[in-house]
């Protein structure tokens, strides 16, 4: 993008000296860094709590521990019935299945809604939006009964199959919005070149949708990784439990909570999503750069 580095309008820019520009840029970064500090504070707090001895976590509001309790990490990793990598692995399986499911099923539905004409399109679209609005707590029991009768409780299926069936309508909506923003002439050109609907979807729309797909993948990762409720209900077996469930196992609201281990493993749990976000973010930028729309 060919933007001016300062918020000043383009005409007066010529009159600004390089020094003024430098000062402006400095202030600009200063403000951003200040904002960044506010955003990052919780992470620093958590990091500090994860390294504090237990009698200091709540009694001392400062960020620097008096002694560095690296043992919290080793303790947290091994304190539960399984070593922590087991929970990370279980979470990863669910996340991978969910991402795959959402990318394929939601983009297919979105293409149909955005580009194809069929009877009851408006109504189905409204229903699709309606499902975003559905509060989970009430369908949870009927859904549980359904999956229980399929024999799927204590398997990963109740967490992955809904994604394969595009029940995350949010992502359909997201991709519909993106596809609707693409020039329709592209589809028509593809059609002239002999592409069918599947060809257009695969060769024209999907490559252009990279940003939306990357967004879908990132959000699916984050939400699935942090999702507590459905994992709690469907994964009861100690061997299938995931990171959010494992973190809660350190807690007991009326007994002993292993705070040091809890914070240490919270930091560890943040690693994969932050890593994926960083990688995905770069991919998102590159994905946009390689698409035809500049």
């Amino acid at each position: 993008m060919t933007e001016t580095p300062t918020p000043a309008p383009s005409k007066p820019r010529a009159k600004q000296s390089p020094a003024t520009l430098g000062v402006k840029r400095f202030v600009f970064h200063l403000v951003l860094i200040g904002a960044a500090m506010v955003m990052i504070y919780p992470l620093l707090w958590m990091l500090s709590a994860s390294l504090k001895p237990i009698d200091e976590i709540f009694a001392d509001p400062g960020l620097i521990p008096s002694t560095w309790e690296w043992g919290n990490y080793a303790d947290g990793w091994n304190a539960l019935p399984h070593p922590f990598e087991k929970y990370i692995w279980n979470s990863m399986i669910i996340v991978a299945g969910s991402i795959l499911g959402n990318l394929v099923s939601c983009s297919m539905a979105a293409y149909a809604f955005a580009r194809l004409r069929f009877p009851m399109r408006g109504m189905l679209f409204a229903i699709m939006l309606g499902t975003i609005m559905l509060p989970i707590h009430v369908v949870i029991i009927p859904q549980y009964i359904l999956f229980n009768n399929l024999g799927w409780v204590d398997t990963f299926w109740p967490l992955i199959v809904p994604k394969l069936l595009a029940t995350d309508a949010f992502f359909i909506f997201l991709m519909v919005q993106f596809i609707r923003g693409l020039p329709k002439e592209l589809d028509e050109a593809a059609s002239i070149d002999g592409c069918g609907y599947w060809g257009t979807y695969l060769r024209v729309i999907m490559p252009l949708c990279m940003p939306a797909l990357a967004t879908t993948a990132i959000f699916t990762f984050i939400w699935t990784w942090n999702d507590f409720y459905s994992q709690l209900i469907y994964l009861r077996d100690i061997d299938l439990q995931t990171v959010p469930l494992a973190l809660r196992l350190f807690m007991d609201s009326t007994g002993t909570t292993n705070w040091g281990a809890l914070f240490a493993m919270s930091i560890v749990a943040l690693g994969p999503i932050f890593g994926f976000f960083l990688a995905g973010q770069r991919y998102l930028v590159r994905g946009i750069a390689t698409t035809g729309i500049k």
Binding site: D154, Y229, I233, R236, L245, R248, M251, D252
Partner: peptide, 12 residues
């Protein structure tokens, strides 16, 4: 098949 939980989560 053992299943440990935290108190509030347990009741849900």
């Amino acid at each position: 098949k053992p299943s440990p939980n935290e108190f509030d989560a347990y009741w849900d």
